[in-house]
């Protein structure tokens, strides 16, 4: 289980090269990054997974895009929409992470979607940039929404991921500070440790229903 930041944006989206991001992430205690629009590889001892984020796309386009990148080792994330959209996305084979629930409708992620996420091993992302950059109402709303997600997570045990959405090395935070930040939403250190390894759970090959012995 590797400590993973589930979403960073290196150059050209951000202002830091993927190598520099890896160098800084290593110093801050990470072992893996999921980077948007970056080829997979290992740099300075940090594993980088290529990731794509699909947003504002109809389901048909999402399915088509996932078919093209399936089995390429790409981490596929979809930005959340309304409840019906989220339930459909969770059911699509090949989707790894559902993001942006802090900005979605309040009823966008309910107990039915939570159970489906647990069954299909789709991770729900907690975007830490909302806690770092937000002030006032926007941060309060994110904390409230994340606490609500954690209630469902404790009941249905779907995977969680933590992501900084860093566009610069200046937006990355040490693992210790992220643990402190997550205490705001009621996560203890073991919860944070599990959430850091959420990418491992969601990208692991599924266990076969039948095991052949001998």
């Amino acid at each position: 289980m590797k400590i993973t930041d589930a979403c960073v944006y290196p150059y050209p989206i951000g202002d830091s090269s993927h190598r520099r991001m890896a160098l800084e992430a290593k110093a801050l205690g990470f072992e893996r990054l999921v980077a948007a629009d970056t080829p997979s590889g290992e740099f300075y001892g940090i594993e980088i997974f290529a990731g794509i984020l699909l947003r504002d796309s109809p389901l048909r386009d999402i399915t088509g895009r996932i078919k093209r990148v399936r089995n390429n080792g790409v981490v596929v994330s979809v930005h959340a929409g309304d409840n019906g959209f989220n339930r459909s996305v969770i059911n699509i084979k090949g989707v790894h992470i559902l993001r942006g629930l802090h900005s979605a409708d309040k009823s966008a992620f309910d107990h039915v979607a939570a159970k489906m996420a647990a069954d299909n091993r789709v991770a729900i992302d907690l975007d830490l940039s909302q806690l770092l950059f937000g002030r006032g109402y926007s941060r309060q709303r994110a904390i409230q929404r994340y606490r609500d997600i954690l209630v469902l997570e404790r009941r249905y045990e779907f995977p969680l991921t933590l992501s900084s959405h860093a566009r610069s090395i200046l937006d990355l935070r040490p693992v210790r500070e992220i643990t402190g930040l997550c205490s705001l939403i009621g996560m203890d250190s073991s919860d944070v440790e599990t959430a850091f390894s959420g990418v491992d759970i969601t990208t692991a090959p599924p266990n076969s229903a039948v095991k052949v012995i001998g």
Binding site: F133, I169, L170, R173, P174, E177, G180, L181, S183
Partner: peptide, 19 residues
């Protein structure tokens, strides 16, 4: 230290504070 981690700008400059 948690509060310091939420500092992203100072005097209109993008910075970060590392403890």
């Amino acid at each position: 230290s948690v509060a310091l981690s939420t500092i992203t700008t100072c005097c209109d400059t993008h910075i970060t504070l590392r403890m």
